[in-house]
Write a protein that binds this DNA or RNA. Structure first.
Lengths: 182, 182
DNA sequence: GCGGTGTGTTGTAAATACTGAACGGCGTTG
DNA sequence: CAACGCCGTTCAGTATTTACAACACACCGC
């Protein structure tokens, strides 16, 4: 865990010089130099000042991955999505070549009558989505919502939930959940 | 962002006294006291020493959620999304009442000529999305992609990237990123 | 060659953080 | 009520970090 190395890598990634970053951060260039050379261990307040010039949060700073990423497919045509349909509901997952994805991003179609099941779903994480067309019924906890095209939702997946399409038109939506369960 | 308050909350959560934590961490109790009272801003090295006595990483320390969750709105009508538009690009965020959301889920519109800027973006996390209509140019690292309606993408946000719409039709897409930067 | 502008590094003096040894408060035990 | 143990705070001295101002080097235009 090398603070100086991290700072230097991030600074260069942003294309900033020590002086430029120092000016934005409200510290002197020598401070940046010494931090990067690990000849000092900056105080939290001064590191935070430095990061504010990037800008970047403490959490980001300490969790940024410095190693170059492995090559993976980036763009997917519609037919390249993984079909993980469950029963009547059509679900297609974006990013098949990302085995350790953080986000499950999918397009879903609920035909008339489709349902995630009478038993409410509960799992870890958070989920969100937006309805593109049709109407859809969403139950979270004891609350029931009727979603219409353009409506969106966001809730903690630990709350019991259920999706259902009791209408006579298919409902099409795009959703995201984290952490990914697939 | 109150370092002292965080440290005290975490220490008490672990059932440690200042002296006990100090002993495990290899610092003096007065150091802990002053950090908790915010009468000093500890150096990275000493904060790291302190955290090693818990034990806890820097990332954990800065990302721990101290407040209990408040009940939040679940369903949002189209007009209830937060507008975080940046220049020409229209961006609307789902889940305004989730201040500590894990996912940034948004609808974006790139009018003709819109661009995230000549300077490539790099930040923590991963991002994904799907193009609903129009065409959009995506650059990741040294690769250039042309997205068409129905195409999707998925990549690590640490890779320099840029979105641009050089075409004469607006591009509309839905995206998800984690962790949320907003 | 020169002067100008950019880079990162390095002395020194001032500001800040850390240690070690006090202190006062609080509950328990004799 | 003393004596003890543990708690968190405070103070003075020491150690570390920071700002300011130089410095050395590289590049560019003239």
């Amino acid at each position: 865990m090398d603070v100086g190395e991290r700072l230097q890598a991030i600074r260069k990634l942003k294309g900033l010089s020590q002086r430029e970053l120092a000016k934005r951060a409200g510290v002197t260039n020598s401070t940046i130099s010494m931090i990067e050379k690990n000849s000092v261990s900056p105080s939290i307040s001064s590191l935070r000042k430095v990061l504010s010039g990037i800008p970047m949060s403490m959490v980001e700073f300490f969790s940024v991955e410095l190693e170059p990423e492995s090559p993976a497919q980036i763009v997917y045509k519609a037919h390249e999505l993984i079909d993980i349909s469950d029963g009547a509901v059509t679900m297609k997952l974006v990013g098949k070549s990302h085995p350790n994805r953080a986000i499950a991003f999918l397009t879903e179609v609920y035909p008339p009558g489709a349902d995630t099941g009478a038993e409410m779903l509960t799992h870890d994480g958070e989920e969100t989505g937006i309805l593109l067309e049709g109407r859809l019924e969403l139950v979270v906890g004891t609350e029931l919502f009727i979603l219409e095209a353009g409506d969106s939702y966001y809730f903690e997946s630990t709350r019991p939930h259920r999706f259902r399409n009791p209408y006579d038109q298919p409902a099409r939506l795009i959703s995201a959940a984290t952490p990914s369960n697939f």
